[in-house]
Design a protein around this nucleic acid. Structure first.
Lengths: 201, 201
DNA sequence: ATGAATCGACCAATCGGTCGGTTGATTTAC
DNA sequence: GTAAATCAACCGACCGATTGGTCGATTCAT
């Protein structure tokens, strides 16, 4: 019987952590199970005991990843009271020293290219979008109730706002020599305040 | 000696076309040289005669791809006179029946995940961004001169506009059940007109 | 006969997954 | 109370399949 009852949960967490870092560093397509074994301090057979296939492990890794990002987003938004501040609270996405950012972007891009063809990954994306959009939507609804915003469809505006964050992030990360952090922050603020002002019919 | 002098150019074009379709359909990581040989109607040795390694071929494919997208963007913009119309002329990006769209998005996502780790691909991205941004920047500069826009930095605004297109495209493509074409088109119009109106200090 | 164009068998390397085996703690049998 | 059986945890050698690249052979126009 198990030495400690929580051993399985501990091991799985260790493996996920090791796999996440390895995938982030080398890229989904280049990572081998051996790499992950080494990073996790386990043998091939040992790892197979917890995750029976590469695909099973990787799906678990990406799931864990999105959960982390979501929690981070939620916690950061909660630091603010004003709906506008909440909606503009994602500047941590453009901090090159942030550990979530450094690990996260490579994983995110990998996941996107996987999502193109595999519905399991598309579904992970969908859930993440949904969670993110709901955070934003709630803030917009509060703003509408308080009269800060007018004539907005909160859901489609929320989707647009998160898309703007992601679009700017893509540039900022993949071509950082031409896209400074200053540009990224100013741009998302202008774009999002533009989306929130109801001068569109 | 070559049967026809242009044979090399013809073959290379055939190979690039076949490779582009194959990569789009199966994904960079899953495509084998055999797949491309079959699609191009050539043997392994025959293909090796024109492209000596997988990497050499793939870089050429992605280069060709970005060139196509750029030409398409340029031509579509030229259909319009008014700077605002030019800047909003990219709704073809959100047409699910467009062949460039169907082939392009999978390739684009693959290229992004490659660009994270390989500077050769990052450089392709950079060049594409630069070309795209310059198209937009020229239109904005005309608008500034004509007095249609005020208080804008044309370059950083151009970068923001193309980022908005790309961010919305990501959602629209990867999670199309929750992101309709109508949403995509309305959203980019609102976001971009917001960026162009100078009510930001 | 020279060399570009093309072929396809073959090689070496890689990788995911399997499987028999070991360890050590717990449970069961007596 | 102890010997035997059991089982989770873990190991690493091995297998089968895949794949990128090579190379000698073949064709054919010049």
């Amino acid at each position: 019987m198990p030495p400690i009852p929580e051993l399985e949960a501990i091991r799985k967490a260790q493996i996920l952590e090791a796999a996440l870092k390895t995938i982030s560093a080398s890229g989904y397509a280049n990572v081998t199970m051996d790499d992950i074994c080494r990073a996790a301090g386990l043998s091939k057979g040992g790892l197979a005991h917890y995750y029976r296939s590469k695909n099973e492990l990787f799906v678990a890794v990406f799931k864990e990843f999105f959960e982390r990002i979501f929690q981070r987003s939620k916690q950061t938004m909660e630091l603010y009271e004003n709906p506008v501040d909440k909606l503009l609270s994602f500047d941590w996405l453009y901090d090159r020293n942030d550990p979530d950012v450094n690990v996260g972007y490579p994983v995110l891009f990998d996941c996107m290219s996987l999502a193109v063809r595999e519905k399991e990954y598309r579904s992970l994306f969908h859930d993440w979008f949904e969670n993110w959009v709901n955070l934003l939507k709630d803030a917009i609804d509060v703003g509408l109730k308080k009269g800060i915003f007018r004539n907005l469809d909160s859901e489609s505006t929320a989707r647009a706002i998160s898309s703007v964050y992601q679009g700017i992030a893509t540039r900022w990360y993949l071509d950082n020599e031409s896209h400074t952090t200053k540009w990224a922050v100013e741009s998302f603020k202008k774009a999002i305040t533009g989306l929130l002002s109801s001068n569109n019919k």
